[in-house]
C-alpha cells in the first residue's frame, strides 16, 4: 500500500493538552465532530459515554481523562477520532485534530526513556515534523481494556451530556 511503498506512513495529528500526538491513519476509521454523547451508567471514568458512528454504538473515550489531564468542555474544535483496532471500534475525544501528514519511517525514533510522562507507556515513537515534536501513540495500549476497566475509577455515574456549543 501507499505507506509501505514509499517508506513513509500517514498519520492523523491531534492536539491534547498542548501536546501534539499522532495516530496511524490506517487505524483511523473516520473523524467526527462531537454532537451528543450519552453517558453510560457505571462506565469507567474515562469513558464519556456512547456515540453512534456509522450506525454502530461505540464508546467515546476521553483521552484527557485517560492520560490524567483535566476535562475541558467540548467545543467546535473537539474531535472524535474513531479508531479500529483489532475487532474494536473506539472513539477518542481529543482537543482538536486538523492534520493528515506523512512521516518518513526514518524520521521516527523509538521513545526516549527520559520522555515518559503519564502517556509515556502509550507512546510508540517520537517524530519531528516541521520542527514539531509529535508523539506517536500505540493505540492498542491506549484502549487497553483491562487497564481502563480496572485502573479507572468511574468518576461519573450518569455524567452530564456533552453538548457541542
Amino acid at each position: 500500500m501507499l505507506e509501505e511503498q514509499n517508506g513513509s506512513k500517514t498519520f492523523i495529528i491531534f492536539e491534547l493538552a498542548g501536546t501534539t500526538y499522532a495516530v496511524r491513519s490506517r487505524l483511523v476509521q473516520q473523524m467526527e465532530m462531537i454532537e451528543e454523547i450519552t453517558p453510560v451508567p457505571n462506565a469507567p471514568a474515562s469513558v464519556e459515554g456512547v456515540v453512534f458512528s456509522r450506525g454502530r454504538v461505540i464508546p467515546a473515550l476521553n483521552l484527557r481523562v485517560r492520560f490524567g489531564f483535566e476535562r475541558i468542555p467540548i467545543d467546535l474544535r473537539t474531535r472524535l477520532i474513531v479508531i479500529e483496532v483489532g475487532e474494536r471500534n473506539v472513539g477518542l475525544i481529543v482537543d482538536s485534530a486538523r492534520e493528515f501528514i506523512s512521516i518518513e519511517a526514518s524520521a521516527i525514533q523509538p521513545p526516549n526513556e527520559a520522555i515518559s510522562g503519564l502517556s509515556g507507556k502509550y507512546i510508540e515513537g517520537i517524530a519531528t515534523v516541521d520542527n514539531r515534536i509529535v508523539l506517536i501513540l500505540d493505540l492498542s495500549e491506549v484502549i487497553n481494556l483491562a487497564e481502563i476497566l480496572i485502573g479507572d475509577q468511574p468518576a461519573h455515574t450518569g455524567a452530564q451530556p456533552a453538548k457541542q456549543g
Binding site: A43, P44, R56, V57, I58, P59, L61, N89, I143
Partner: peptide, 9 residues
C-alpha cells in the same frame, strides 16, 4: 436497536 459490542460500554 443497536447492539453494544465494546466491553468498555
Amino acid at each position: 436497536v443497536r447492539v453494544i459490542n465494546d466491553p468498555l460500554i
